[in-house]
Amino acid sequence: MIRSVKAFAPATVANVSCGFDILGFAIDAMGDTVELIRKDEPGLRVVSIEGDGGKLPLEAKKNTCAVAIQAMLDELDEQVGMDIYLTKGLPLGSGMGSSAASAVAALEAANCLLGRPFEKKNLLPFAIEAEKVACGAAHADNVAPSLLGGFVLIRDYHPLDVIKLPVPNGLYCTLLHPHYELNTADSRSVLRDKIPMKHSTIQSGNVAGLIAGLYEGDFELISRSLRDVIAEPYRAVLLPGFYEVREALKTAGALGMGISGSGPTLFALSKGKDTAQAIASAAKEVYSSIGLGVDVYFSEINTKGAYLIEEK
């Protein structure tokens, strides 16, 4: 019998410019790790959390790892004991799918510990339950790509309909995490309840174009489609240096740039590692010029999602 397992789940970018609340993708650069150790008595216990600065709850009912695992156990109608050890590789409230990565890593580990009763894609509803606890809404545009990898389309929730999209060879992402906080509630509050028909039409065309570009491996079409006319115009004013950064990244060769999730992290897609590095350098220069620190990460798109690191 397996007594302990350790799993990793990657960071994610949600929305992907035009795909507000319906598109997301995973990246290789960073993520969260969860170790589970089976214990004799039933129940889940969050033993330790590293890398969160003491901000995340150890109480099982409030911790996304434990909530996700408990949802799985409830579905199986099983009483199993597990000690949970979470290592955060993602900053909190960063727009990189931090809560999603924790829940997904926990589910990948728990599924292994229990003998893999679920196919990977069938773990998604349990991860969504954890997102409800983390952010109050059952969004899947972070948990789905973190679990499955690559680009993912959330077509519908009732019933849940998730489609994994292809990733062209050589597609890279650069993440820019500026050193300031942006409250998710503030980022949501600036959005409009009503969308003009013209903007809805433009956005729909861009979503369709982006998906077609991914299937065709057409980087020019991907670039033309990375445009958000619904959320970005209102959120950009909350992000210092947004337009200066966008112009610099375009000059450096970015296919396009947008806000990762609700921010403050920005993402840029590019063709090839060299361009991703040039984008990173250009971004650092802009943020330095406005007196703002920034953490920069770049990598290829993660196409395998969460995975097991070790089992004993």
Rank of each mutant, 00 (worst) to 15 (best):
R3Y: 14
S17E: 12
A26W: 08
D28N: 15
V34A: 05
L36P: 07
I37T: 15
P42S: 09
V47R: 14
P57D: 11
P57K: 04
E59T: 12
K61H: 13
K62R: 15
N63W: 09
T64M: 09
D77R: 15
V80L: 05
M96D: 02
S98A: 13
S98I: 07
V104F: 03
A105D: 04
A106E: 09
A110F: 04
N111F: 10
C112E: 14
N122I: 00
P125C: 09
P125Y: 05
K132L: 15
H139E: 06
V143R: 12
A144I: 09
L147V: 06
L148P: 07
F151R: 09
V152T: 06
L153I: 03
P159C: 06
L160N: 09
P168V: 04
P168W: 09
Y172M: 11
C173H: 01
H177D: 01
K194I: 13
K194R: 13
I195F: 10
I202R: 13
N206R: 14
L214A: 11
F219P: 06
L221Q: 14
L221V: 04
L226I: 08
P240Y: 02
Y243N: 14
E247T: 12
A252K: 11
G256P: 08
M257R: 03
G261V: 05
T265H: 02
T265Q: 03
L266K: 03
A268E: 02
I279Y: 02
A282W: 03
S288T: 13
S288K: 15
S288C: 01
L292Q: 15
L292A: 02
L292I: 15
V294G: 00
L308E: 02
E310C: 10
